[in-house]
Design a protein around this nucleic acid. Sequence first.
DNA 1: CTGAAAGCGCTAACAC
DNA 2: GTGTTAGCGCTTTCAG
Lengths: 338, 338
Amino acid sequence: MTIKDIARECGVGISTVSRVLNNKPDVSEEVRKKVLAAVETNGYIPNNSARDLVKSRSDAIGVVVRGTGNLFFSDMLKVIAAEIDRRGYDMILRFLATDEDEVKAGAILEREKKLRGLLFLGGRFNYTPAEMSLIGVPYVCCSYTNSFGTLRESDFSSVSIDDFKTAYEAVSVLIAAGHSRIAAFFDACDDHSISELRYDGYCAALKKNGIPVDPALVVQTGGFEMEDGYRSMKSLIESGAGFTAAFVEADMMAIAAIKALHDCHKRVPEDCSVIAIDGLKLSEYTSPTLTTMIQPGEEIARESVRILMDMIEKGIEGVHLRPEAHLRNGGSVCSRQL
Amino acid sequence: MTIKDIARECGVGISTVSRVLNNKPDVSEEVRKKVLAAVETNGYIPNNSARDLVKSRSDAIGVVVRGTGNLFFSDMLKVIAAEIDRRGYDMILRFLATDEDEVKAGAILEREKKLRGLLFLGGRFNYTPAEMSLIGVPYVCCSYTNSFGTLRESDFSSVSIDDFKTAYEAVSVLIAAGHSRIAAFFDACDDHSISELRYDGYCAALKKNGIPVDPALVVQTGGFEMEDGYRSMKSLIESGAGFTAAFVEADMMAIAAIKALHDCHKRVPEDCSVIAIDGLKLSEYTSPTLTTMIQPGEEIARESVRILMDMIEKGIEGVHLRPEAHLRNGGSVCSRQL
DNA sequence: CTGAAAGCGCTAACAC
DNA sequence: GTGTTAGCGCTTTCAG
């Protein structure tokens, strides 16, 4: 069933059907109705490949999300969708597994859909100019940056918290509460990515306060899953290393780490305080409520779209926004009895 | 940059480039290398729209997922992807917001990608034959069924737990533990969907045990979000209705409901037992571990793909599998002191 | 207002 | 082995 079939059935030309389908004017009401009826009864659906192929440019923004189960992203996505729609653009959404290449996916999408711009949610921190030359439209990195790459600042935009600073602040909260034996959990400490930045923030906060970094208290979890957080906390406890607080680089892992503490008959926060980074809605519903640095997801989403639009419509150069993360004072941190 | 440009640059014909790109034989090693080099240096990416348009049939399975943040689906997806790949097919994944129409999306995808079959994760329970006639390939409803629709059983397949029975069993666990004042939380009770089935199961279990259904203990949450669970439990507590246990139709809401109980200084399970349905990984990491009916997600995923393949390759008729949900004895249910 | 015709970029015969 | 060519289904000039 193609546009040709509909045209034949209605005894009109194929371009007339096209006009009706695309809500163009210059079609008599009578013909319009006849065509619409034929479309309905035949269950005709236009072929998008053909449409995209002939189109020389669309008003679409591509959104490439890496990591399906990422709750933080799924909250941001709603805001992004609304913002893009409000500005009269279409949104083309693609989800990628964590092991897929977001740049390649973005480049494919750009050509296929003749995109005007791209939004990346989740990606590597070390893009090179050569690599990004595949992307021919303005793009914004949402909630991450290019700290370890060689991109020129003016060539792209990014909106994300300052990971180093946020980790620094989180650990400082613990120190201010009297803790000095502070365990820490990171995916990895030298992966040239978000975890390295947060690890550096952790170390800086300790040093600033004259506390040596004890390697025995730093655990590399090898992932961001709950299993990783649980297993890591459990093995740290079993190692016998003494600590009164823990900094966990992500809410999900922190929730699992707290479970591990409970399973080892340690109370939170009495026996061990826990602080994290993210501010997922989910972590409000644990007991105790997780104390965490809240990433302003809504702001990140809104500003990302705004900046992208400015790049597209006004041709501005890359902008790099660093909104503040704010402490949510849950119940998982308490002062150390001195 | 098109295939034509690459051809010109290499001084070869356009079909030769096509052959190289698609790994066809009958290309001299020398030419192959030259083409590949040109592709690389130019950052050429084939246009998928053009490819799809000319292709008359693919070996692709479409997977349409409704509900981005659904953790249950994101676990199943990994298994589905692996199974499809193992059988030599490609998987085309589309995520939909909860308010989008999965049937229409499936129909579009089918035409665009020339699909061999479709897998729906999440959808309505009341399809009609007219509506589904848009779909021209075999399809399987994963983790839901057509209980309220008019489809012929032989025209489609489904793999899901028996929602009525599973709810019945969950409530029976509570009753067996000595509870009779059992609150219950559903999205809605008469929406011709999953919630209605589970509500019916709740009622049946009570009646079977001579316990009247008290409308004051049945709460319609108006959604599946954590907010919905929290708010609903809170208002039930404030209503002053007495109850010693709660059946919640989904893990996420149950987690939030438990938080509400805690916030009202009620202990779980001592003051109120809680049981749910789902078996999310997440609910293992709450304290206490949630007692819940585990949906065999992996089995559902694996069997769905298997059945779809049988429909495609062997032309079998619709199959309807009802794998068992199993009780996970967490710590959120205890016996009522009589 | 409406139809004919020229591609969009690619694959798959079909010739050579 | 390799090039030429005919569409895939659609939008968009350009005539009428």
